[in-house]
Design a protein around this nucleic acid. Structure first.
Lengths: 337, 337
DNA sequence: ACTTAGCACTTGAACGTGTCGAGTGCTAAG
DNA sequence: CTTAGCACTCGACACGTTCAAGTGCTAAGT
């Protein structure tokens, strides 16, 4: 019972299923891939994979379909990056030439990504210029835990709990708040890190450590607060990829219209070492997205804003990851010039 | 053979079909509506209506379905406006209270409209502030016909043929162009009418009449050029109303993503005396919209921008017209304060 | 001149049946 | 640990039958 071969079988199942959209059985597997073994052996492997919960049979005795965990295992095994095809290079080239203002670049980028992946593409728009710090609030929660709240002029309220080394007295908290507020009020969000550092220097020595922790929390909040808009393209792909309507697209469209939900979803994603974040099916805990996956990454200075694609769990993860990464890199390069 | 009753039968067919989504036969018609006649008479009327091309039978001997012309006749007969329901009043009330900046008002309005009608709502966003006149071109076409081209700083190019009383020499055309360009270059689009009038006064007497005609054309162009963005809501309704997928929503979603197409479509609409514009099925000459209808009207100062809904030809025109009109009125009132 | 009742006819939808093929699990042999 | 073989399952598909809704037409009634 070779562990490696079993995973190879899983890979084959996922790839076949993604393309055929139909449960894949041992026979088909034998034809399309040259694994060096017979159908019976594959069946045994499949039985084991099913025990592990990586694949399931929709009904007794028809082919297997990957489960969410199956996709997850498959995705985690992807390491190599497919290089860009020449068609993609050409598309990107065309994009460069038509470049107008920044908003237009973003708009075109998201369309491009939708076209490359045949999926819904989404992109967070960072808006430094419009938004300034309106208010800051600090609330002691005991044991050094302190709630930091940042309110932006765009009405967004972001909060986070900072863990200080030791508890801070209420009066000191007020001092810290006054110092931070004095330094940061009406600052643009991208100025927060610099101004916060400045504000720290005016603090008494005893509060420096606590202030630094709070400033760090504020910096991270300001990054989140800076994206408050989304552009999207390719919703038609959603309908097309789904003409067999295995999943109803209605709830997905509803979720996509709730920009607040989308913003939060994207902000939550943590980009893994390979440079992308992948959320599969119910790993997205949002209503309506139980049967969809998200592949995204960050772009721009400090990778503050995210760009990615959203599609049915049965998607071509490998291609999507490559396309998202390539587009994000390209976009970062454009924006920095 | 009473003409009035036949139209009444048509009305009944349309209303029933809109709600049931199924071909409606003489029996059903007799049950649900109290027309004072028997099924046989209705059948005779239906035969006549079919001859007129207002309804068709999908297959020999099953109920009738309205044709596009049938809907058209039905819509044209609508005169009375359904008053707003209390639910609608409440929804609008809720909207008022949350009013933030103008963009947010528009955003909320379009969502409201989508919710009220259970359809896709679209709204043109007028942008006076951003856009200025970049260039004006005049081209003589002979017999007094003159092509007027207006190029805005947003890159939009609008053109129209103006009919002058008599032919103007090429040199005079250059004089007119210089005068208009001098007065209008870098004007904001909403200032065009005033500035154009001013520019006319510097013209020699002989060119006054021609100049006035050209200025009128420019004014109308500037109105068109001022809208270059669309906000949309309720695409999920499209999928929902269509879960029986009588029309594939893919091409519709594609058309909706082409904002340029949508902008042109809305701009073309001519609002009829009742205060709304209705385009049914193939009256929209755009790919993908052959089986959808648009109900829209203008809003804001001079009704420059349009707001409306888009849905399957089989839609509740009466409600849609009422909702669109009410929302547009309300929106105009808000914006003027 | 219309309207109505009655009747023969059409037709899609729903349902039951039988066949077919892809696929499985299991057992026994290599 | 792999393979061949076999009995068994179950959905997809193709048919045939029945059923109800609906039509057009004709003849009688107002």
């Amino acid at each position: 019972m070779s562990e490696a071969r079993r995973l190879e079988v899983l890979r084959a199942i996922v790839e076949d299923f993604v393309h055929s959209r139909e449960p894949v059985g041992s026979r088909m597997l034998l034809d399309r891939h040259q694994l060096g073994v017979s159908a019976a052996t594959i069946r045994n492997d499949m039985a084991l994979l099913e025990e592990e919960g990586l694949i399931v049979a929709p009904h007794t005795s028809s082919g297997r379909v990957p489960t969410e965990q199956g996709y997850r295992r498959f995705v985690d095994r992807i390491e190599d990056v497919r290089p860009l095809s020449s068609a993609e290079r050409r598309a990107i080239q065309a994009l460069i030439e038509g470049a107008g203002d920044v908003d237009e670049v973003l708009e075109r980028t998201v369309r491009l990504l939708a076209q490359l992946t045949n999926q819904v593409a989404v992109l967070q728009v960072p808006q430094f210029s419009n938004t300034v710090v309106r208010h800051i609030e600090l609330v002691g929660l005991g044991e050094g835990r302190t709630l930091v709240v940042l309110i932006g002029s765009n009405g967004k309220v972001e909060q986070r709990v900072a863990q200080l080394e030791r508890d801070v007295a209420e009066e000191d908290l007020q001092v810290l708040k006054a110092a931070l507020l004095g330094g940061l009020a009406d600052s643009r969000l991208d100025e927060v890190p610099a101004r916060a550092e400045l504000a720290l220097s005016s603090l008494p020595q005893t509060l420096r450590a606590a202030g630094a922790s709070l400033a760090a929390a504020l910096n991270s909040l300001s990054e989140h607060s800076v994206v408050d808009k989304i552009v999207m393209a390719g919703t038609a792909n959603l309908a097309r990829s789904n003409r067999d309507f295995s999943l109803s697209i209605t709830p997905v469209l509803e979720a996509l219209e709730e920009q607040v939900v989308l913003l939060r979803l994207l902000s939550e994603l943590e980009i893994d070492p390979r440079g992308v974040a992948v959320r599969i099916g119910r790993e997205n805990m949002y209503d309506g997205l139980e049967e969809t996956s998200v592949v995204a990454t960050g772009y721009g200075p400090d990778k503050i804003a995210k760009v990615g694609v959203l599609g049915p769990t049965r998607m071509d993860y490998s291609s999507s990851m490559a396309a998202v990464r390539a587009v994000a890199r390209y976009l970062s390069r454009i924006l920095s010039s």
